[in-house]
Design a protein around this nucleic acid. Structure first.
Length: 455
RNA sequence: GCGAUCGUAGCUCAGUUGGUUAGAGCGCCGGCUUGUGGUGCCGGAGGUCGGGGGUUCGAGACCCCUCGAUCGCCCCA
């Protein structure tokens, strides 16, 4: 590589091969589960006016104050690449009059941008799947959303992950709790870590999940949200947990679980790998794989009517790390024309087979030997080798259908389907009633038959 | 924004206390062998050792800066 070749931007990734398969598997599974739960697909712009994020997330949050990709466009407007989905969806809900569809269940996925230090499972351009229920104040909405998340993780085959659940109460409960925490921690401020002293000013709730040893002694006796919950908030949370129990979704109360962004109320949750699990190992310090909560305050911060809503998002890269290696599957059929003159016949066959919904790849570069070697490496279920033979004065073609023994067991079931497909192509084209074609059979075609085939 | 480790061919890595034309395996290209084929053998292309500066008779190795990667902290999915 020349030193003049531009490099990828820090924190971005080019995804290829097995990793790309993992990524696609996550997205495809999400799409399937989304339909099962009847969430409607939406597409959102990748950038918005900066104020969309500044007003909804809160000016003082780290995301807004130092992690946004903001720029001025040619018209002088301040725009920002979306650092999350929720704010943009809320904006769309308000500007498009989607109130008429409320309660509205929507889902989307795509890239997000945050100027952060890259590390394991964390990038500057990263990707999330996202689900939201807007305009539903009932705890049933929280339950349905969590059921969907739970089923998604199960269908992805991710094990050793637990739903950690908490309530932040309604607006007034949350404020009372926050004030009590500030009082409590201010009294011992000098003994707290520097980080937590700062959090005391900016985000006191966050002190609760501090990892610093100096903070730990004070955490157990800190004020609990449960002592500040209004009767309504308590009833709401109970309805959520009862619903989860009814649906068979396992959960664990996590009193220290809070949300960083200002707009959250009531339910807050994260799916976190169990300690010592393979999932925890694979993720390093990026422990949360799916997180969200209720954000009843958001719409008002954007100047809209009070609108209750609840949602979650999950990092696709993180999920992809947990779904296990998905190899790129080999082709069903590999076609190897031994000489270039037979490339036309190979093209004809591949086109016909693809129309039969059989994925097919043609190997036609290098010597016959190399062609076969490359076809081997692609691990097809079946080979079709086109071999031109000369016998005395006439020329004929041999078409050899050969199952791949190397991965025989894997393709056992597939083979019959594949050979059926090949048989169909030949019998239809040659207008013969049937064609015997067991594994390893050789079909000899005269030039005039090839002519019929290629017509 | 802070800290630690690292950066040699397309990939995975060797490269001894600084000492001649920087190596291997895999991959790629070509040839031979074999001849219903996945093997073996031979050959070839491909590196200003991330970039810049410095120390030295001499730097891939040492020092500084910078860029990037990885893993933590903060924050967060």
């Amino acid at each position: 590589m020349s030193k003049n070749t531009p490099k990828a931007i820090r924190g971005t990734q080019d995804i290829f091969g097995a990793d790309a398969e993992d990524f696609a598997f996550v997205v495809e599974t999400f799409e399937r589960v989304r339909r099962l739960f009847r969430f409607r697909r939406i597409e959102m712009p990748v950038f918005e006016k900066t104020e969309v994020f500044a007003r909804s997330l809160g000016e003082t949050t780290d995301v807004v104050s130092k992690e946004m990709y903001s720029f001025e466009d040619r018209g002088g407007d301040s725009l920002t690449l979306r650092p999350e989905f929720t704010a943009g969806i809320a904006r769309a809900f308000l500007t498009n009059g989607w109130q008429q569809h409320a309660p509205l269940k929507v889902a989307t996925h795509g890239p997000l941008f945050r100027y952060e230090r890259p590390q394991k499972g964390r990038y500057r351009q990263f990707h999330q799947i996202d689900a939201e229920i807007i305009g539903a104040a009932e705890p049933q909405a929280d339950v349905e959303l969590l059921c969907m998340a739970d089923q998604l993780l199960k269908e992805l085959g991710i094990k050793g992950v637990t739903l950690h659940l908490n309530t932040l109460g309604d607006g007034s409960s949350r404020e009372a709790w926050r004030a009590a925490l500030v009082d409590y921690f201010s009294a011992v401020k000098g003994d707290l870590s520097e980080d937590s002293q700062e959090r005391l000013e900016k985000n006191p709730l966050r002190i609760l999940d501090s990892k610093d040893r100096r903070d730990k002694p004070f955490l157990a006796d800190a004020p609990k949200i449960d002592d500040f919950l209004s009767d309504e908030a308590r009833a709401f949370f109970k309805a959520v947990t009862d619903g989860l129990d009814a649906a068979g979704v396992k959960w664990k109360r996590a009193e220290a679980l809070v949300r960083g962004l200002d707009y959250y109320r009531h339910t807050a949750f994260e799916f976190i790998p169990d300690e010592g699990s393979a999932a925890a190992d694979a993720l390093g310090s990026q422990s949360t794989i799916l997180g969200g909560g209720r954000y009843d305050g958001l719409m008002e911060s954007l100047g809209g009517p009070a609108t209750p809503a609840v949602g979650w998002a999950a990092g696709i890269e993180r999920l992809a790390m947990l779904v296990g290696e998905r190899e790129e599957a080999g082709p069903a059929i590999a076609i190897v024309p031994e000489v270039d003159d037979d490339f036309g016949l190979a093209t004809l066959l591949s086109a016909a087979l693809r129309r039969q919904a059989l994925n097919t790849e043609v190997f036609a570069t290098g010597s016959a030997r190399k062609r076969f070697g490359k076809a081997m490496k692609a691990l097809p279920a079946v080979f079709i080798i086109i071999n031109r033979q000369k016998v005395v004065n006439s020329e004929y073609f041999e078409i050899l259908t050969k199952p791949n023994d190397r991965r025989g067991a894997l393709h056992e079931v597939l083979r019959d389907e594949i050979l059926d497909g090949i048989r169909t192509v030949f019998t239809e084209r040659l207008k013969v009633s049937s064609m015997n074609m067991p594994y390893g059979s050789i079909i000899q075609l005269k030039p005039e038959e090839v002519l019929v085939l290629t017509k």
